[in-house]
C-alpha cells in the first residue's frame, strides 16, 4: 500500500472500494483543480488579499484531504493560522505550498498510471 507524505493511496482506494476507474477520475479532478487553486493563492498574496489567501488555503486543504495529502494540507492549515493571527504571509509559505503541490501531483499521477498499467491496486 502506497503511503507517502504526498498522498494516502489507502484512503483513496477505500473511498472507491478499489474501483480503479473512480480512483483515476478523482486523480484527474485533483490534478485539474489544485494547480488552479494554488495559482489563485499566489495571486491573492500578490494582491495583498489576506481574506482570499485564507479562503484559497482552506479550499486547497479540503481538496487535498480527499487524497490524504497530509503534508500539503498541513501547510495550508499553517497559512490559515498565519492569516488569523495577523502574521504576514511570507513568499516562502506560498513557495512551500507550490512545491508540495507539485510533489503530490507527480506522485499521485504516477501511482494512478501504475494502477492502470499493472492492474494492481497499489
Amino acid at each position: 500500500m502506497t503511503m507517502t507524505r504526498e498522498f494516502d493511496a489507502g484512503l483513496v482506494l477505500s473511498a472507491f472500494d478499489g474501483e480503479v476507474s473512480d480512483v483515476k477520475a478523482l486523480v484527474v479532478l485533483v490534478s485539474a483543480s489544485i494547480p488552479a487553486y494554488v495559482a489563485d493563492l499566489r495571486a491573492a498574496r500578490t494582491a495583498g488579499d489576506t481574506k482570499k489567501m485564507a479562503f484559497m488555503a482552506h479550499t486547497i486543504g479540503g481538496a487535498v484531504g480527499n487524497v490524504g495529502a497530509v503534508r500539503l494540507a498541513g501547510l495550508t492549515r499553517e497559512l490559515q493560522e498565519m492569516v488569523r493571527g495577523g502574521v504576514p504571509v511570507t513568499n516562502e509559505a506560498i513557495v512551500a505550498i507550490e512545491k508540495a503541490t507539485g510533489e503530490m501531483l507527480t506522485s499521485i499521477t504516477a501511482w494512478a498510471d501504475s494502477l492502470g498499467l499493472s492492474g494492481e491496486q497499489a
Partner: peptide, 17 residues
C-alpha cells in the same frame, strides 16, 4: 453543495454506492 469538484465526486460516490 461544495465548491470543490473532487470533494463532490468523493461524496457522490460514497452516497450512491
Amino acid at each position: 453543495c461544495d465548491d470543490d469538484a473532487s470533494t463532490r465526486f468523493v461524496l457522490r460516490r460514497i452516497l450512491a454506492q
